[in-house]
Nucleic acid binder design. Structure first.
Lengths: 255, 255
DNA sequence: TAGTGGTCTAGACCACCAT
DNA sequence: TGGTGGTCTAGACCACTAG
């Protein structure tokens, strides 16, 4: 069959301009369309998507094209495909979040589970660094969460998170913020974290960090600055984590 | 066409056992076969592979199956595909190595190019940590390379590399080891680095590191322990890098 | 213009899962 | 047993590159 046969059949799909410059593969259009639906909460986290056949029929596209779009989305961890069962919206459950976004591991290779103690949740306005990282205007309202995380019962991570207040209304009034914040973001605010970028440095502990982590001032700490992005690619969270790395390390895979 | 039609046509491909347990997709067999050829130096780095059509005919497999195998290998950075030109063996040129395996960046986002000064190349025998990381028996002959790397003219990284001596004969007699060692490994020893795993910690500078990096003893340093793997997945290099992170940081992307 | 990888389709069959 | 994703094939056309 010819590649352009489907032109204009489905309104959501751009009828191939077919002029060399504006060419956009069909499967990418399908991927973007489905990603947009996902971001808009059209399907709830954990929900099953329509089958490939069904999507193909709805979108007037071949099953192979839908498959390629779904494969791309699975590679971006937006959906999960299970042979024999179906395709599901990725959930921010503990295992997934820990696996994808928590890179601290015991020196013996053991996977460790962090416990969190929230010290405060306070409204404020974005400083220059926060504004730049989150793509906000300076002085935009933000929320700041201070918490200390423990590994194996020892306080090991002191961190401060900054969130755009607009995206998380009422969050400062909540009690008992969960250990897995990304699950809360997804389930209560419809915001799924899809990707994050971290910058690491070695620094000496300041007075506050030394107190919270029960170390002496100047002790070497791993400083991790993270910006987290939503499914649509917008920055949604910025955090600074100060980690004691005695008995633990940060893992980075490169391929 | 039926999936099993090709059974036994090509001796290199296992005639599908087709019993549920030992099932192995054709395209994975093709991928493994081509990966093996790559590791054996059947094609030189930078060389062009046969076209999809040609490979398909040779292996008695459809073009789509070859394509899927090649796509998988491209995702593993073993080959590079260029529309209109062909498929090429990945090269360990400076840009690629820097892009894939050097994660230090200037705080202003500028990509920095490290200069290396080799202090010594010495034969020895593997200690327990080295033996474990490299999958060697203790006391196996190894080579150790000590070097200091500079960013923007400032000595910033003090590192020690350990290599199995068996894989790199005569390396200790070379003069002027290049900055890009992986290029040397590939071009002179037929060993391409395909993947690496790093463990990061914050530590205080010891006397030696302090001297080499012109810092005071106890200054916080980023300690990076890397194990690098060949195309076939065997550990080939182990290194410990101590990095001063004033003005620089380590980047980690998570998706 | 010829050759390469990239996209799209159509249809068959297989492996896996729930029922 | 029926439905889902996964594999494999076959063939057409498109976009890109080089000579």
């Amino acid at each position: 069959m010819k590649g352009a046969e489907h032109a204009g059949i489905t309104p959501q799909l751009i009828a191939d301009p077919e002029g060399s410059p504006g060419f956009r593969p069909l499967y990418k259009q399908v991927r973007d369309l489905l990603t947009r639906r996902l971001a808009d909460g059209f399907w709830a986290p954990g929900a099953m998507l329509p089958s490939e056949q069904e999507l193909a029929a709805t979108l007037s596209v071949s099953q192979g094209t839908v498959r390629k779009a779904l494969d791309a989305m699975a590679a971006e961890n937006l959906i999960v495909r299970r042979q024999g069962r179906g395709t599901f919206v990725a959930q921010q459950d503990d295992e997934r979040v820990l696996f994808h976004f928590f890179r601290m591991t015991g020196d013996d290779g053991s996977h460790v589970f962090p416990e969190s103690e929230v010290e405060s949740v306070r409204p404020g306005t974005a400083g220059t660094a926060e504004a730049e990282a989150l793509g906000l205007d300076p002085d935009t309202p933000v929320l700041r969460i201070l918490r200390t995380r423990s590994l194996g019962g020892r306080p090991v991570i002191a961190e401060c998170l900054t969130l755009p207040a607009r995206l998380f209304p009422g969050l400062e009034d909540r009690r008992d913020l969960p250990n897995n914040l990304y699950g809360l973001f997804a389930d209560q605010y419809g915001i799924s974290i899809a990707r994050a970028s971290e910058r690491l440095k070695a620094v000496g502990a300041d007075r506050d960090a030394a107190r919270r982590l029960e170390l002496s001032e100047g002790a070497p700490l791993l400083a991790i600055e993270r910006t987290a992005f939503s499914v649509m690619g917008d920055p949604v969270e910025w955090r600074l984590s100060l980690c004691a790395t005695e008995g633990f390390h940060y893992v980075s895979e490169m391929r």
